[in-house]
Write a protein that binds this DNA or RNA. Sequence first.
DNA 1: CGGGCCCTTGACGTTAGTCAAAGAGCGTGG
DNA 2: CCACGCTCTTTGACTAACGTCAAGGGCCCG
Lengths: 243, 243
Amino acid sequence: MAASILELNSEIALKADVFRDSPRDQALPLIRTGKLLKIDRGDIVFLQDESAHSLFIVLDGWVKLNRVSSSGVESVVSILGREELLGMVCAMTGEVYPTNAEAVSDLRLLQIEADAVQQAMRDNAKLCHSFLEASVRRNKVLVKQIEQIKSHSGAQRIAGFLRGLCRVDCGSCSVDLPFDKALIASWLGVKPETLSRVFKRLQPYGVDVSKNHATISSVERLTRFIEGDMPPARRDAPLNTQG
Amino acid sequence: MAASILELNSEIALKADVFRDSPRDQALPLIRTGKLLKIDRGDIVFLQDESAHSLFIVLDGWVKLNRVSSSGVESVVSILGREELLGMVCAMTGEVYPTNAEAVSDLRLLQIEADAVQQAMRDNAKLCHSFLEASVRRNKVLVKQIEQIKSHSGAQRIAGFLRGLCRVDCGSCSVDLPFDKALIASWLGVKPETLSRVFKRLQPYGVDVSKNHATISSVERLTRFIEGDMPPARRDAPLNTQG
DNA sequence: CGGGCCCTTGACGTTAGTCAAAGAGCGTGG
DNA sequence: CCACGCTCTTTGACTAACGTCAAGGGCCCG
């Protein structure tokens, strides 16, 4: 049963968040209006404040959403992978994109015109409701992220990121970092140097990161660290005692 | 033309964000199903993770939305005033509230049952679309807030808050702080002590805060500060030289 | 006048950013 | 196969930003 490329892509797209509660026969026609895009690492998908002409579904690869403040500082708002949506909600209502989107790996996207999205929503109240739900979910993610930044230290956020990669709640676990460390740092709102130092500080908690691979010997211990049981970083007792 | 209390409240509610693009005759019946609530300062409107039974519109006063992390640290996600909505999107889709809501002043709220909201949305595609748009707008506010926290220093955020209070883009301006300083600090993600010190550091930029009143002698100068033209805080040259 | 509350101030510690330099991996071309 | 340059990452020393703790100060209200 060799499905066509188009069908394969449609299947991936169907799994996306927005369509989670939409009947398949309503979502699929919309998805089929989409065009396949291949984008190279480093290329821009869209720019902040550009009018939202399309919605994109990530078929493969990673995209970062970032904003550049007036003083030129970049901050990464989120990083999206397979089955996730870009410009989701903006395209629905014909607004401008609130962020830039840049490919951080080679990328395959499904591009769906905003007009088609809006048309589908008008024709179909259920779809509109699904979009609303997706938007609400995204909202929650953002609220949580704000809480994260405000009430956790950099080290805690980094540990939280690692825990999020684990597919288990307890015991040990071994995972690949999904993208390079500079990007992880930027996402978590710290500098690469800090990320590197924190990884080292997590060693006594059973965390070992080398290259793009992390081993967590006890997810519970990591969780305890995140929840604030965190002895201050001691400079007077360096890890490397032979100096 | 002495309108009834109910009518007055409905008029306030109609100005709320969600109804901005809804025809009056669609929004008003929904609003009229609402009940008036009076809440004292310090009381809780709803709790984080509580199932979202109602949507609230602020008629008067201030509510803070906060989250408490597992380690007990509070972070204020936003502060809402007149004509703003609480639990907006959650109630639309029957989820749980992502935050606590606490009255930070005496408060008058209009409470609309989630069932009524959902019923209205089913009956009325246009209303559903309005909610979607409101949710998208809120999304953008959150994204901006994340950018703010990640790429601006505490001092810059505080200055930004002050500028936001000004009703003008240039020239001088005099405003009242809308709530007490501890709450402002918490909203901006800094400690009250830091807020206090930053206010002092802003004096050379023409900002003067005393009690709950602020005078900005030049909004442009303040803007320049926000955008990063910020000499480092000098400890060796205290403002108060007579010590 | 005394107590409580909110805010300010000072001294000090911790956290994270900056700058500079050195490693580590990796593809290319000789 | 190795040297080269490239990029990503790590490390160290230093600094700035912010939090913590503790002690006042002003203000309101009984």
